[in-house]
Amino acid sequence: MATREAAYGPQPGIRLRAESRRWSEDVVKGVLALCALVSVATTVGIVIALLEPSIEFFGEVSVVDFFSGTTWAPLFVPSSFGVLPLLAGTLNVTAVACLVAMPLGLAAAIFLSEYARPRVRQILKPSLEVLAGIPTVVFGFFALTFFTPLLQDVGIDVNVFNALSAGIVMGVMLIPTVASISEDAMAAVPRELRDGAYALGGSRLQVSTRIVVPAAISGIVASFVLAISRAIGETMIVLIAAGGIAQLTADSREPMQTMTAFIAATGIGDVPTGSIEYKTIFAVGLTLFVITLVMNVFAIRLVRKYREIYE
């Protein structure tokens, strides 16, 4: 043993450390850490950018009025700052989008994970991702100039601008989001679970729905939450296809304004800095940011959970 150590361990008298401190190495590390700081600064910047004008805003408009008011008319005289119509618009479009994206996305994930042969999956999965790569302004154009007229042609009495068309097109856009994260979770379910169920005589339908889906449920829920979060944060489709009227209605065939569409529509105009109209952008932006942040944190936790269980 002693001879081995002598052969492999450090020889006496030889120091493995660098003979002199290499300052350039520290400089490099510093520069790289500075790069990493950019994303921290981004977060801090977003929080400050949103908070400061929002605090001023809530100095002029009471928080209770903001969250319980049913009329949103910041540019009118007398103005009214009830955010509920915007929230309702967001909720409506999001609900429609989720009704499309969740079942279709989950089914697509089950197909890719449990039914498709490896070669088929290799082609289908990236092809489906193409949907996620199309700019949203293009989907907005499609919803306004093709899908809404199509709905009218099949006898659904929708307005030229409506939440239904925007929501459905957005839902299809979100199918890859749901499918890809759900499929990842299903792929992480150990083979043994499936084999055991098949050995007990389970059919493919039973194994998929009673073994794989329950085992991958945290990942599936995560994909759903991320889809909701993305639907809430999506701007261009609703700005183009859902119209610009902030009204409190549950009827998806009507025009609506979402939080994102309001921010964009107001930001386009040349509102004077410091005016109350200018500050509404930030108050609504803060509301949007907090909602999506909570959902994202939740989704990220869930994804980590299924990774811990099976990997």
């Binding site: 994303s39 981004t42 977060t43 910047g45 977003i46 950018a49 949103l50 991320l226 979060s229 993305r230 809430i232 944060g233 999506e234 701007t235 994102t260 921010i263 964009a264 930001g267 952008i281 930030f282 932006g285 949007l288 940011f289 999506t292 942040l293 994202n296 944190v297 989704a299 990220i300």
Partner: peptide, 14 residues
């Protein structure tokens, strides 16, 4: 991870 999921319009506000 969180920044990746922040709505793009929020970057516009920034």
């Amino acid at each position: 991870q969180n920044l990746a999921a922040v709505p793009s319009i929020v970057y516009g506000i920034l």
